[in-house]
Design a protein around this nucleic acid. Structure first.
Lengths: 200, 200, 200, 200
DNA sequence: CCTTAATCGAGACGGTACGTCAGGTCTTGTG
DNA sequence: CACAAGACCTGACGTACCGTCTCGATTAAGG
């Protein structure tokens, strides 16, 4: 008798098209960035993904969940940098918010705003969108604290939230993501002094 | 003959009920905070204000404009503090964002998020909601810079945006406004070191 | 104090447009005759009535009820004839089924077929569409029975149903309503012999 | 060499399951009678036949054609009776419409109603469902006309359509097929007097 | 025995209509 | 004129179903 290693014995019926999933998410990002959450039309998303509404609702339960999933799909893999100095590591983390084309930040801000009033979705959005890059910052700071580069009384949690806060703030109010100038200024003029005032 | 200098000579017909205006704005704040922008229903707002949709549209041209007006109605008068020290003035400005009950911040965040995709409204919202408290901070810092309490190379614009950024960030992600602890920590651990690293 | 005779004290709000009701019913008749029940589209009906679906659903709870109402609107007032002879009265009754333009009969047949499987609607349709003209025939025959022109053993109920049966049969199978030739033949060759075989 | 006269030389691949065809038709009859044409769901039919939609569409091109095929499958073989008297033959023909359980008549009426608005299908349905039993009646009457039992001026076509007309009428309006009492009354009180008024 | 080709059940697919609902406008009667 | 009520049109929502397509598995027939 052969060893049966199949855990999931192939579900019956035609399998879902994985390319379709990607096409829908890509179309969602496009349309939401163009129009915002409320004005984004599912028919338009479906049209651009060359599919129908049914295929969308087979995968996500509502427009809101679809948009959150689309935002998640934009998130780059977060890596904890280790570049030799606290400053270099902070710069690396902050550059995560320098969106390739502002699109990502705008999308994320839209999602966060929409999710604000649906607790369940807000938790999801927070977990998948908000947490990871914050976690990298926190890890970096704690690592350098052990190495003595951070004063012990520094309010790490508050400092960790400064970068994402500035990023979302700029996107919501000015439709601009962070740029290299701001990143450097944030690190050199705000984060470093806050973490270790002595070494300005 | 009495002197009648009024340029707009009392329009004919029944005058508008001024109490109704306030009732509508109050109902709008309630409903938007409960449900968010998209899920807020004009019928529900009208119902709670004991009026009809027509009375609303006689005053504002769209749901979006109504909501922005409701947000503006929440804003406290911004005063530029002058309390004797840079630190005291910064604390006073930051306390503007300690919402009486978080409601204000949540309302403002909702409006900003909604306005994100309507350029005209975004400008209005930015001007009436975002600018004034920022202006107070900017004024305070510039005043103390003249008095030598701020290093000349400090990135004032960036620092000025830190407080509102943190405030909106907390509201969007955690549904919490600033509190006294955070305000103090922001001023003492972030703003003061950034403005004048030598005197922590 | 004035006498208050108003039973229904004018409902609040804008009253429904009675012309719209007629326009919707007329459009429904048109579309159903062209396309049949299943292929009739509410959007198309709304378009031809220069209105929207909401105005339709405000008046009727479903497509089926709308179509039945449209069929009822086609029914001519049924009058019981009294023309001096049994034969003349039968002819007059039968001519009720000579549809002005076949449209009526086709519409009625469509409705009956659709209503067949919804008991509640079938009862309604039967009552409003099927009963009245049958009742006229029954009245006529009973009146002439009292005058001795009908043999006592004639199966009145069966004979009464022959005319509508033939009418619906022709419409369903041949898309034709009754015509004068058939009406005369039915009366002279079928009904009269069945009612009173002696007098050919 | 064996003589192979089969024009269709056994198609390659797995042959169709003949039992499945019957199961699908039976399920179709069930569901259509329960729900009517419009509300009959192909998924439900497939489920009751323990198969899938594909197996249905491999055999019939549309729901309408399937339902017509199901109706045809209900039709009893029509035989032209020859029982020794006009009356006996008419009774035999009429009894074709005494459905075993009303189901057949209801099914046929549903099909005819549905086919009403699809000319091609109406022709098919008319040919396969409506024609045969009518043909038997026509044959019987013509045979007895030659034997002198039918007056020459009798409107044979009209009389021939009376039985099916009554049958469909009763089914559409009352959900009842013909019964023995009605059959006898139709023959004795309507058909016989119409065909030969002298001999009631 | 193994390839071939069509079947089978299951279910995803694109499309389209359903019936609902909300935004913003218009129309009543009343004050 | 303002006001409350509610009908109006428009258009998106999320659901359901038709008819097609695709999957893995099954089932003869032919080499």
């Amino acid at each position: 008798m052969v060893s049966d290693i199949s855990r999931t014995p192939t579900p019956a019926g035609r399998p879902r098209d994985p390319a379709l999933e990607r096409a829908i998410l890509a179309a969602t990002v496009e349309v939401v960035i163009e129009s915002g959450f409320a004005a984004a039309r599912l028919e338009e998303i479906a049209r651009r993904a060359h599919t129908g509404k049914a295929a969308i609702y087979r995968r996500w339960r509502s427009k809101t969940e679809l948009v959150i999933a689309a935002a998640e799909s934009l998130l780059a893999e977060v890596v904890v940098p280790d570049e030799g100095s606290l400053r270099q590591d902070l710069l690396a983390c902050a550059r995560h918010y320098v969106s390739p084309n502002t699109r990502t930040a705008l999308m994320l801000a839209t999602v966060l705003a929409e999710a604000t009033h649906t607790d369940e979705l807000r938790a999801t959005a927070l977990e998948s969108i908000g947490r990871p890059p914050t976690e990298a910052l926190r890890t970096v700071i704690q690592r350098w604290a052990l190495r003595g580069a951070v004063r012990s009384s520094a309010p790490v949690e508050l400092i960790v939230s400064l970068i994402p806060a500035i990023a979302f703030h700029r996107v919501l109010l000015h439709h601009e993501g962070l740029n290299e100038t701001i990143v450097v200024s944030m690190v050199d003029d705000v984060l470093m002094p806050a973490l270790n005032p002595g070494h300005q």
